[in-house]
Amino acid sequence: MDLTLAAKLFAALFAIMSPLSIVPIFLALTADLDAAGRRSTLIAMVGTVTIGALVCAFAGHALLGLFGIDVAHFRLAGGLIVLMIALSMLSGDDHSSHQGTPEEKAQYKSTSNPGVYPLGLPIALGPGTMATIIVYAQQSGTEPAIAGFYAGLVGYLVFFAAAMALAPWLGSRLSPTALSISKRLMGIILAAIAMEMVGGALGAMFPGWLK
C-alpha cells in the first residue's frame, strides 16, 4: 500500500473540506431542529458526501472521457481551482465555489433538508473536492497506489462522519481565533498540494520541461 499517497489524499481532503469550518455552518442551519431532525440532516450530509466522493473515484475517468477531456488538462484545471480556494483560506475568506454566493446563502434556510444542499453539496463536496478526488484517482496506476488511494479516501470519509457527529461538542469548544488560525494553516497545506497538481499537469503536458 502506498501510504504516502494515502496521507497526501487525506491531508488534501482535510484541508479543502475543512470540517472545523463546516461545524459552525452545520450548527447554524440546524439550530431550529430537534435532535431527530439534526440527526437526519447529519445522515443526509454524510450520505451525500460519501456517494459523491465514490462516484468521483469510480466514474471520474469515464466522465472525463465522455467529454473528451484529457487527464492532464483536468489536473491543471483542478489544481488551479484548489489554488484559488487555498488563497481564499489564506486571506481568511470562504471561496464561493464551496460556501456559495450571497444569493445562494440567502436560500439555504428555505431548503427542506440542508444535509443534501447546501451542507453536502457544495459546502463539503464542492468543485475543489471533486477535482482533487478525480486527480488522485487518476494518479493511482499500480495496485499499491490504488490501495493507498482508497485507504486515504475511506479513512477520511470515516473521519469526516465522526467529526460531524461531534459537531455540537466541537462547536462549544472552537473559538473564532482557533477557526481563523486553522483556516490559514489548512490554506498553506492546500496551496502546496495545488501547486503539486499544477506542476504534475504541466510536466505531463510539456515533458520537455522536465529535462
Rank of each mutant, 00 (worst) to 15 (best):
S172C: 09
L190E: 13
I69F: 11
S112G: 07
I25C: 01
P122D: 08
T48F: 05
A62C: 01
L166I: 09
G79Q: 06
P207D: 07
G155H: 12
G200W: 01
G115F: 09
M89L: 06
I123L: 11
I181D: 05
I123V: 14
S18L: 04
P102M: 07
F159D: 08
M45T: 15
G78T: 12
R38Q: 15
M45R: 02
D70E: 13
L174Y: 08
M84S: 11
I189C: 15
T129P: 09
R38V: 10
A137G: 08
A12I: 03
F14K: 02
P118F: 10
G200I: 00
K105W: 02
A192G: 09
L76V: 08
I43T: 15
S97W: 08
L66Y: 06
M195N: 04
G65K: 04
P24S: 06
E196C: 00
I25T: 05
V198F: 00
A147I: 13
I146E: 10
L121D: 04
M197S: 00
K211V: 04
H61T: 12
H73A: 15
E103Q: 12
V198R: 00
G79D: 05
K211S: 03
G79N: 10
G152T: 05
A191R: 11
F149K: 08
A86K: 01
G100I: 08
A77V: 06
A165L: 15
D94P: 01
F67M: 13
G78Q: 08
D94L: 14
A106H: 08
M84A: 12
S180C: 00
P207W: 01
G37E: 13
E104V: 10
H61W: 03
F160K: 04
V135G: 00
H95Q: 11
I188L: 14
L202Q: 00
P144Y: 10
A86T: 12
Q138E: 13
M89A: 09
D70Q: 10
L179G: 12
